[in-house]
Write a protein that binds this DNA or RNA. Structure first.
Lengths: 236, 236
DNA sequence: TCAAGCTCAAAAGTAATACTTATTCAAGAA
DNA sequence: TTCTTGAATAAGTATTACTTTTGAGCTTGA
């Protein structure tokens, strides 16, 4: 996707909208954008087109490009997620994504238990073991890496592309959580045990067991975050 | 969004990709697209740009526009969902969406119980009553309407934009289910009772109750679909 | 023979310009 | 006051020209 100007302009404009610097209802004119970014009409138009397909704006003749209400945005677009995570909306986005995760991952575990390939089941168990080891060794960074790999693999193994697509999102949440001090100093033994339990349940095709164990994981994560948020109030 | 040519070309091309008529790896050249659709370079370029942001294609200089692997598609894009539901991928898409729904809606119910406005709680109870009435009267079409409204309201009331955005998806699934004979002739009494239970739990802020009752609903839906699918095998 | 590097051409990216269409706003007539 | 009409405006569409990247084939030298 080697285009330069396009990507550049899109990033700036999109981020501005995603973080509310351009409030809903604000009107832009395309020639004004050309001037502001020193880009050609072609580039300006295509950027607007893209924003439009993401639901961030609508274009009306004789009026201009209107910033849409957040309710109409495509909140699952990877770009929009990134803009929010990188901007002032970070805290809210992280909360939103965590909630989504808490709903999706138990289901994903269930379907993974139903449909994962033998190879995937094996790798999942292996990752479970690695998590135990690195947790014991208190190697937080590699623990995080394996944690992300574990959830990624599980979502992919669910055989549902909509679940699989959320793996990048989950990775962001997990990484953002540790980098924001919303995580205990060392991995909780129970959480690790639950990961191993999920892997084992998936391995033997125990759908209810996998779903239940995964629910334990996300519930715990939810509690941790709630606790962390209430202690350092509004931890932006 | 009054553009004509653009939308038209996008729809045809996007649908072709979404339904596998243009296999991953297939290469298009933009001047070839211009010719094929009788559109200008501008339109062709913008269409390609949009497809690119949806993850359906990537463009490489000196090569052309390459159809991407489905794994890279943005499966939450409303357009893509529509193309799949309207095309040969309908059955698979419906399954995928139903699974997503089964994960998300119980969580949404939980957060709705936590955060719904008084007005929303009231409307939810009202919709519950309506569902009972129309079920008793065996008025299937208005029952469907209220059912959709119920789930839509609940997802919106969850206060999570990513949940709220799925309301259109849920509506498609519910509508598609009835129009495809994947639904019993008349609403099941238990399902109706569960809807009422969800509304009541949300009303009094019973998070666990709301989540649990909603899980009952989606589990039942899952079983119905599984049964229907296994009876008329591969019901495309 | 083979690998490194060069040249060329193909196709996307960018720019500029002219023309078309729809829509708002306002002026003027009923 | 309200409806009609028309002009102004900004997006939509089309065309053309120029730039940049890059894959492929060719040349050259080890």
């Amino acid at each position: 996707m080697g285009s330069d100007r396009h990507e550049e302009v899109l990033d700036v404009l999109g981020a501005a909208i995603a973080n509310g610097e351009l409030a809903p209802g604000a009107v832009l004119r395309s020639d004004e954008l050309q001037e502001r970014f020193g880009a050609s009409r072609t580039v300006a138009r295509e950027v607007v087109r893209v924003l439009e397909t993401m639901g961030l704006t609508t274009s009306r003749r004789r009026v201009g490009v209107i910033v849409s209400d957040p309710a109409g945005w495509n909140h699952y677009d990877p770009r929009l997620i990134r803009w929010q995570l990188d901007g002032s909306e970070r805290a809210g986005a992280l909360r939103t994504l965590t909630e989504l995760r808490s709903g999706v991952e138990p289901s994903a575990a269930r379907f993974a238990a139903l449909r994962a390939t033998p190879e995937e089941r094996g790798r999942l168990r292996a990752l479970g073991h690695r998590l135990e080891e690195t947790a014991r060794a208190r190697d937080l960074t590699t623990f995080l890496g394996h944690d992300i790999a574990f959830h990624d693999l599980l979502l992919t193994a669910s055989g549902n592309p909509m679940f699989a697509q959320l793996s990048t999102v989950v990775a962001e949440v997990l990484a953002g959580r540790t980098s924001h001090g919303l995580m205990p100093e060392e991995p909780q033994p129970e959480a690790v045990a639950l990961h191993v339990e999920v892997a084992a349940a998936v391995d033997v095709g125990d759908v209810d067991g996998a779903e239940c164990a995964m629910r334990g994981i996300v519930d715990q994560a939810r509690e941790e975050i709630a606790a962390a948020v209430s202690s350092n109030l509004g931890g932006q």
